[in-house]
Amino acid sequence: MVKQIGTLFIILLIAVPISAQQSFHRSLKLMGSGFQITVVVKDSTEANRVIDLAINEISRIEKLISSWDPNSETSLINKNAGIKPVKVSVELYDLIERAIGLSGLTDGAFDISYASMDKIWKFDGSMKEMPSKEEIKSSVAKVGFQKIILDSRNKSVFLKDKGMKIGFGAIGKGYAADQAKALLLKNNVQAGIINA
């Protein structure tokens, strides 16, 4: 079950009464946000092992989708906008395809190409005035999920316009939490919470 409130994602594992098991919890910062991982297992050794697996999975996904990491596949796509398609991993290709599907369902209200606007909009509290109408118009011109070209045969992604960017701020943490949950379930964790 996934509960979404703004950027809050809570992933619940199968919650069943489990005798002789205890709840173990770890809070840390991942993907630029607070994550709390709780598992119900037999002892602290097992808890540390499976929580570490979940943390490693979330960190792996962050390296894949981060637009801040210059070595990520996402950064490579952004650097080659308007220049050439970039061959990516099946996982990233599938995530982008899924995001484009959500964009279609929402008539563009959800759009991973929003990241093209990052040069004029700052969400760190440093902005003292609104950008000009011309700056906004120019920035918005680079946004549009329809300009993200996927090649399913080559598993490549091409952003049609120079200056276009994609970013996973809206779905990255939820995707990472889902993947960590799946990994915990594969490792016989039958109850817990991943809160991002």
Rank of each mutant, 00 (worst) to 15 (best):
F168M: 13
N154L: 08
S132G: 13
K155A: 01
D107H: 12
S126P: 01
I149W: 08
I136Q: 09
K160H: 07
S103T: 06
F145H: 15
E129W: 00
S113C: 08
I100L: 15
V157G: 03
K119Y: 13
A180S: 12
D118Q: 15
K128L: 10
G163D: 03
M117E: 12
I136T: 08
F110L: 08
A115Q: 13
K181W: 02
E134N: 01
P131V: 08
Q179T: 09
M127F: 04
K133D: 14
K155L: 11
E129V: 09
G104C: 06
W121V: 01
M164P: 03
K119G: 10
K137I: 11
L102F: 04
F123R: 05
K173W: 02
E129D: 12
V143G: 08
D107R: 13
L184D: 00
A182Y: 13
K155Y: 09
A177M: 04
D124S: 08
G101E: 14
L159G: 08
K155G: 02
F145E: 07
V143M: 15
I171N: 11
D111R: 10
T106N: 01
G167I: 03
D151S: 10
G163Y: 05
G167L: 06
S116K: 03
F110K: 00
D124T: 03
E135I: 05
A99W: 02
I120H: 03
S116H: 02
D124A: 06
N187Q: 05
G167R: 01
D151M: 02
K128C: 06
D118P: 04
I120D: 05
T106I: 00
D118I: 11
D178L: 15
S132T: 15
D178A: 14
A182P: 00
A109S: 11
K181G: 12
Y114M: 08
N154Y: 03
D107G: 08
K133G: 02
D111C: 09
S126Y: 07
M164H: 00
D161V: 05
Q190A: 03
L159F: 13
K119V: 10
L185C: 06
Q190F: 06
K162C: 04
F168N: 03
F110Q: 04
G174V: 07
E129S: 10
G174Y: 13
K181Q: 09
E135Y: 12
N188P: 05
Q146N: 14
E134T: 08
M117P: 00
A191K: 01
P131Y: 12
A176C: 06
I166T: 07
K181H: 07
A99T: 05
D111Q: 09
S103R: 06
Y114L: 07
L183I: 05
A182S: 13
K133E: 14
S113W: 05
L184H: 02
S156C: 05
F145Y: 15
G169N: 15
G169R: 14
G144M: 10
G167T: 01
S132E: 12
K122W: 13
P131S: 10
V189A: 01
W121T: 04
A176I: 11
M127K: 10
F168W: 10
I120E: 02
K122E: 14
M127L: 14
K147A: 11
